[in-house]
Simulated scan of single mutants.
Amino acid sequence: MNFLSRRIAHLDMDAFFASVELLRYPQLRGLPVVIGGKSEHKPALQADGNLHFSRLRDYVGRGVITTATYEARAAGVFSAMGMMKAAQLAPDAILLPVDFGAYRHYSQLFKTAVASIAPQIEDSGIDEIYIDLSSLPDDSLTLAKRIKQAVFNATGLTCSIGITPNKLLSKICSDLEKPDGVTILDMSDIPDRIWPLPVRKINGIGPKTEKKLASLGISTIAELAQVELSFLQIHFGRGYSTWLYEASHGIDHRPVMTRSEPKSISRETTFERNLHPRHDRDGLSEALMTLCTRIAEDLKRKGYLGRTIGIKLRFEDFHTVTRDITLTTFIADDISIRQAARECLRRVPLEKKLRLLGIRVSTLSFAHSLQVANVLAQAELPLDF
């Protein structure tokens, strides 16, 4: 297929976690709401039948914000911001705990709805997907409206869609008209719509690269596009400088991958306070058990078994260590994962307090594939010469 004939959409749910919570608590619509609290921040039913909601100013700890409503974002509160810092900006914002079970449910609902219209989908996260629209007969705006309506009918939630010739541009465009927006561009629109944007709008340019580009006098995508490739190669690696150059010109040949195999499945938790390996043994054991249980649930839901179990420890001085063990058989149950994780823990000197614990399962294989292989290996098949 010719590159210029491609129509790739990026669909991004609007403030997804917060929007799911507003379905549950519609009385909070229009208010600044922050998601990222703990179980004790769950709304409490009062004697008069009304719900009491926690406020961000009441939060104490080292947690970070998972997401926030657009009203909270208007106050300067954004995802990944520390709770204590956010409380200074929006002390009266409503604080709700995270409910990943509900978010996964709505994630599946919206993806199923989109697949009924455009089945060529690349799952890019719990709240976003890429969609290849190239082979569909309807025009882009008609398709976007149909998809948005299908998502709303299935979930009651809104989404924003960018449609362009490639994934890179569509990712940028889905963010241009939020919330509940549609942006459709072709390559000729790049100078007017893409180049004026800051370089950080390109997915793949992080804070470090943004800072380095700024030191070179490059802050917009237009300024990046005007730089010679040879200049970029002086300051960045050959491969990355080529990518920067092409990205600034809207070039991206990546296909929509309708099936993506994960290399690993992991979970981690940052403790509200640093935990001592001996004095806080019960708390650490509970955290380990919770992580292993959740990973086992992830493996079951996605249909995988794993053979390599790893741990990640971050100490109070921010020093981070990892250890892993590869088993002789594939596993997916929480007890086996926990046993392997404890074997890894025995290989680490636990003398300082811990601020983070993580568990990872890798060397993955589909459970169904292994079951079939085991059946064939154990079956007494007749010789058929």
Rank of each mutant, 00 (worst) to 15 (best):
S160W: 09
D180M: 03
R146D: 07
G181A: 00
K211M: 15
A214S: 08
A144I: 01
E223P: 08
C173T: 07
D192Y: 05
I202S: 02
K167D: 09
V151T: 06
D180G: 04
I161T: 02
V182S: 03
S140R: 10
L216C: 01
D138E: 14
G156M: 03
G206K: 11
T164A: 12
Q226T: 07
I163P: 07
I147K: 13
P165C: 01
M187W: 10
H235Y: 14
I218Y: 09
S230G: 04
G217V: 00
I163Y: 11
S188W: 05
L133Y: 13
S140I: 00
D189E: 06
T220L: 02
K171E: 03
P198N: 04
L141S: 13
I161R: 10
R200P: 01
N153E: 15
S188H: 13
L213S: 06
A144D: 01
L157A: 02
A150D: 11
I172M: 15
L213M: 05
E223L: 04
T209S: 14
V151E: 08
A222N: 07
I205R: 12
I184A: 08
S170R: 01
S241T: 10
T220S: 15
L216V: 00
A214C: 07
I202G: 05
T183P: 03
L176F: 12
A225F: 12
L169K: 04
C159N: 13
K145P: 01
L169D: 03
D175N: 12
A214G: 10
K167F: 07
L143V: 05
F152N: 13
V151I: 14
G156C: 02
T164L: 01
S230T: 15
G156V: 00
L157P: 07
E210W: 08
T164R: 04
T158Y: 12
D127H: 06
I205F: 09
P165T: 03
I205M: 10
R238T: 08
S219H: 13
K211W: 13
D192T: 13
T158H: 14
L168F: 07
L176E: 05
T155K: 14
V227S: 11
I184C: 05
I172K: 07
N166F: 02
I218P: 02
L133H: 12
T164Y: 06
T142R: 15
S241D: 14
S134E: 00
G217L: 00
A154T: 09
D138V: 04
D138P: 05
L157T: 04
L143F: 10
K201W: 11
D138Q: 14
C159M: 03
D189V: 07
S241K: 15
L141W: 12
K148L: 05
N166G: 01
D192L: 11
S215M: 06
L232H: 05
K208D: 01
G239V: 09
S215E: 13
S219C: 15
